[in-house]
Amino acid sequence: MLEKLANLDRRIIFLFVGLAVLIPIIFPLGLPNAVSQPVQNIYDFVETIPEGSLVFISFDYGPSTKIECEPMALAVTKQLFRRNIKVVGWALWPEGASMARNVFDVTGKEYNKKYGVDYINLGYKAGGSITIKEIGEDIRSTFPQDVDNISIDKYSVMDGVKNYKNFKLGVSVSAGVPGLREYIVVANSIFGVPIAGGCTAVSAPEMYPYLNSKQMVGLMGGLKGAAEYETLMNYVGDASKGMDAQSIAHLLIVLFVIMSNIIFFMQKKK
């Protein structure tokens, strides 16, 4: 019996995880979210940016991580639009351009913002760190056209914008490389632009050294980070809804680990 439990078929574990995720989505628990300091720091920083200033958002994620990263991008963009801050979006991942399109479509409509006047989507540019550096030298040569291949000179939001000096803050919502770390190393360290960011929960521990050394304004780690931002913005979005499922899934994993340890000690005793 013990042997059987110790070598539990992984499909049974998968079944439990599936149910732990599915049931809270169907029957939400509505648990409240406490806000952590790294997320609060981003929110507070945005609140200090004067109206009409420029902020850039780099959409460095794809469809695979959309579920985790998009709520972060949505929450930050909503706060920026609410404060009448202009947003310039671009992507270092090929699929990032369409991710940016999704976010701007939703938030632009909600806050009645006009494309080209209040925000712009510059699309995707290959090159990772090289592109980040090029933007610091001249954004107009890096992105001469927007995502629809129209010259950026035709949009008032880009009037007089030359490089990072025109931006009060840079936000990278990233699921890997190139992404947040590259913005810290190049855009912050070389050009001095304040960088805030969001990343998948798996990568979040890697970002703490930069947070600790104050090379970043703040950090949203995974769905939890996005849910905290939604709490600060006073709305229940996909991240907040997903936290119930994540709560139960985490609890289930803890229970599985406790169970496997009990079996382990019983086997040892035998």
């Binding site: 628990l29 648990l31 409240p32 979210n33 406490a34 929960a201 939890k224 936290m243 119930d244 994540q246 709560s247 139960i248 985490h250 609890l251 994993i253 803890v254 680990v257």
Partner: peptide, 12 residues
């Protein structure tokens, strides 16, 4: 355990 539960509302 602390991190896993501390990172979700249920843990709090």
């Amino acid at each position: 355990f602390i991190v896993m539960l501390g990172r979700v509302p249920l843990g709090e």
